[in-house]
Design a protein around this nucleic acid. Structure first.
Length: 97
DNA sequence: AAGCTGACTCGCT
DNA sequence: GAGCGAGCCAGCT
């Protein structure tokens, strides 16, 4: 576990139920790193947090976890458009945590 | 220290 | 709308 990974997981933990953020959004709100960096952290430590609330900027789900993510997201009433999340509606901007 | 890899993104075809 | 190339950056060899 690296310090950077801790900060990423810390922010992901604050994403409200029913909302989502893209990898790039997480990096931007954190003010450090980039989408790839966040993706690496999720790949290694995602199991310890609400990994399903972090996905691609176009709303598509994390590769290899489409089925499970869809189930969890629907359970949280996250707005979806087919197989993808409706980003304009579900995206969390970090305000009102 | 240099090189490779990958749960990323964006612009162009 | 799908495919491709280039830029991105943390972690591991």
């Amino acid at each position: 576990m690296t310090p950077y990974a801790s900060r990423v997981l810390d922010l992901v933990d604050r994403i409200p139920r029913g909302r989502v953020m893209s990898y790039g959004d997480v990096a931007e709100l954190m003010g450090e790193g980039s989408a790839r960096g966040v993706g690496s952290v999720m790949a290694r430590y995602g199991a310890e947090t609400c990994w399903h609330r972090v996905l691609m900027s176009d709303g598509s789900l994390p590769p290899g976890h489409e089925r499970e993510a869809t189930a969890l997201l629907k359970r949280e009433r996250v707005p979806m458009r087919g197989t993808r999340v409706d980003m304009p509606a579900a995206r969390w901007d970090g305000r009102g945590a």
